[in-house]
Design a protein around this nucleic acid. Structure first.
Lengths: 166, 166
DNA sequence: TTTTGTTTTCAAAATAAATTGAAAATTAGG
DNA sequence: CCTAATTTTCAATTTATTTTGAAAACAAAA
């Protein structure tokens, strides 16, 4: 496999993986392209490289900025905007955790908390209350753990955590 | 909120959360229904409760069996199959980790490993190789960590890990 | 202010994914 | 071997999501 092939394959795979996650393919492919691009790119270059429409490129670059995975770069004397991906992998992972947690876990947590109110009726539906209580406990622990993970040092995950687990 | 309402809300929310994940709504709703049902249910009861078609119920119950989140129960003298959800939350989480890892992480790992071969050409595309190497390293660590997590004791996650993180 | 290069928006079209339901396959009992 | 109950399959349909592209908005320079 030569480098050009490998780059194409990387972009394709990153896109495929993301769509297993509920993140759309274009967003992931734009991310992959910017990740492996040593220089910042303009929206036009992204459109060109990935063969996607302007609106698509624009919306997904925007989403990546929101996620903190891509940064905007302005050049003096130029009107075009350049975009460069965050290259520090720990930061990348951290931002992904933050955003997915916000989207996937937090809403469920809120629902479970609302349900805590139902516990008064528990005697009449013990099983339901037990299940909800268990899930709620677990979810809160997971939430705290992710929060701590996000606050942790860059090397913490790779060094400390792994050693503890083994 | 009374218990009936709460149950409906739980099923709905579980379904919504799952679809943010790339797991289909019906599968999650069947799971939620079986989770909060104290008694095993038949496919017909699931269809009835969730108002979904037979094929849908069947395919998703089957998927949940594959994921190890639901167990089949046969009753002597009865032809119908009964289904009951795994109620131990640690087991549930473990099975979800195993299955999502298999689906989301492992394929990417394989692609990254294939790309390791490209490293020979690295001098001519240093940046690409660095990015791939970083992601590869990180992904392998994450993979090992998840494997360890899965092997860990039931209480490990909630007790040990959390204390370590704080 | 007008022109021009650039970004953003969003309705419509295309694509992808989930769901239905009827027919086929399977299985146990007679 | 039949019959009847049950489960599985899958083509067609429906629903949801993504993508397009042209028009509008915006912003810098003339």
């Amino acid at each position: 496999m030569d480098v050009k092939e490998a780059k194409a394959k990387f972009i394709e795979s990153w896109g495929k993986m993301a769509s297993e996650w509920g993140i759309n393919r274009s967003m992931a492919q734009v991310h992959a392209l910017l990740l492996i691009s040593p220089e910042p790119l303009t929206a036009d270059q992204v459109m060109e490289e990935l063969d996607i429409a302007r609106g698509n490129a624009n919306m997904n670059i925007r989403a990546l900025l929101d996620w903190g995975l891509v940064h905007k770069q302005l050049r003096p004397g130029e009107r075009k905007e350049y975009f460069i991906a965050e290259k520090d992998m720990w930061t990348v992972v951290r931002q992904i955790i933050i955003n997915r947690k916000k989207r996937e876990l937090d809403p469920m947590l809120r629902v479970l908390d609302e349900m805590a109110g139902v516990e008064e009726n528990c005697p009449e539906s013990e099983h339901f209350c037990t299940v909800v209580r268990d899930i709620r406990k677990f979810s809160h622990k997971a939430s705290q753990t992710l929060d701590s993970l996000v606050k942790a040092e860059a090397n913490w995950f790779t060094h400390t955590f792994l050693n503890m687990v083994r």
